[in-house]
C-alpha cells in the first residue's frame, strides 16, 4: 500500500499538465504580487537583512494580506521544483534505457539541452531556498578609517585604510553635479598573521574566508558637503546558496543556447 502511494505520488508529479497548472498559478500569484507591491516596498526590503524565517515571523505576520502572495509563492515554487525533477528524471531514465538512444545526433543534443535547462531550474530553486534559509547576514555595519572591527563569529578583522571618492564626471544630470557616485574603499583584512588587502566598491563585493562584504552606503557623498566625516556602511553575508544559484544560471544558459542552436538544426521539429 505505501509503495502504491509513492508510485501514485510520483506519477502525479511526473505530469506536464501539473507543470502548466503550476506555472499559470505562479504567473497569477506574481501578478498579484506586482499589485500588492505598489507602495508597499518597505515590507519586503528587510527580508534581505533578516533572512526568510525571521521575516516570515515578523513582517509577514504583521501584514498578512500584503504578504499573502509571497507566502503562496513559496509552496508553488517548491512544487514546481519537485515536478521538474520528477519529469526530467523520468525522461532521462527513458532516454538512457529505451530506444530514444537511437535518436539522430542533433535531436539527441536538443533533448539533452532541454533536460539540462530543467535540471538547472531545480538547482536554481534549491539555491534560492538555501540562500534564504541558511545564509548568515550582518546588516548595516559602519566602518570608519582607523577603527578596525572584528567580523561577528570569526577572528577576521577588517580595517578601512583609505577612501578614494569617484565623482560624477559628466554634466547631464543636475542633481549629480559635484556628487560622488562611487568609492574605492581600501580594506585590510587580518586573520592571525595573515593579511589581505582588498578594495570594496558599489556593485563590487569583497569575498574573503567565506564571508562576502557588500557596500551599501558611503560618506561623504559630496566634496565640501554638510557632513565631511568618512565612513562606509556594508553588509556581511555568508551565503551557501549563491554558488549553486550561479552554477545553475550558467547551466541554464548553456542548455538554452543548445536548445536554440539545435532547434534550427533539427529538421523534424518538436511540434514547433
Amino acid at each position: 500500500m505505501p509503495i502504491q502511494l509513492v508510485v501514485r505520488t510520483y506519477q502525479f508529479f511526473c505530469s506536464i499538465k501539473l507543470t502548466v497548472t503550476l506555472l499559470l498559478l505562479l504567473v497569477a500569484d506574481l501578478s498579484l504580487g506586482y499589485i500588492c507591491l505598489q507602495g508597499k516596498v518597505s515590507l519586503f526590503q528587510p527580508m534581505n537583512e533578516v533572512g526568510l524565517s525571521q521575516w516570515l515571523l515578523t513582517y509577514a505576520r504583521s501584514q498578512p494580506l500584503d504578504s499573502a502572495w509571497f507566502l503562496l509563492l513559496l509552496p508553488l515554487l517548491s512544487l514546481l521544483g519537485i515536478n521538474t525533477l520528477c519529469c526530467t528524471g523520468e525522461k532521462l531514465y527513458h532516454l538512457v534505457r529505451s530506444q530514444h538512444t537511437r535518436l539522430p545526433a542533433n535531436r539527441l543534443w536538443l533533448t539533452l539541452s532541454i533536460h539540462l535547462m530543467h535540471l538547472a531550474m531545480v538547482l536554481l530553486l534549491a539555491g534560492y531556498l538555501t540562500s534564504y534559509t541558511l545564509s548568515t547576514i550582518y546588516p548595516s555595519i559602519t566602518l570608519t578609517p582607523g577603527l578596525p572591527l572584528t567580523v561577528p563569529g570569526s577572528s577576521l578583522q577588517v580595517e578601512l585604510l583609505e577612501m578614494q571618492m569617484i565623482p560624477y564626471s559628466r554634466n547631464r544630470l543636475i542633481p549629480f553635479l559635484g556628487r560622488n557616485i562611487d568609492v574605492n574603499a581600501h580594506l585590510l583584512f587580518k586573520d592571525g598573521k595573515e593579511q589581505v588587502h582588498a578594495t570594496l566598491a558599489m556593485n563590487r563585493p569583497v569575498h574573503i574566508h567565506g564571508f562576502s562584504f557588500f557596500l551599501q552606503r558611503f560618506n561623504p557623498t559630496r566634496a565640501g558637503g554638510m557632513s565631511p566625516s568618512q565612513y562606509i556602511i556594508f553588509d556581511i553575508r555568508r551565503d551557501p546558496g549563491v554558488l549553486p544559484t550561479f552554477i545553475a544560471m550558467g547551466a541554464f544558459l548553456t542548455g538554452l543556447f543548445g536548445y536554440l542552436f539545435f532547434r534550427h538544426r533539427t529538421r523534424k521539429r518538436l511540434e514547433l
Partner: peptide, 8 residues
C-alpha cells in the same frame, strides 16, 4: 544587494 533576488 548581496542576494540574487530582491522581492521588493
Amino acid at each position: 544587494w548581496g542576494t540574487p533576488v530582491v522581492w521588493h
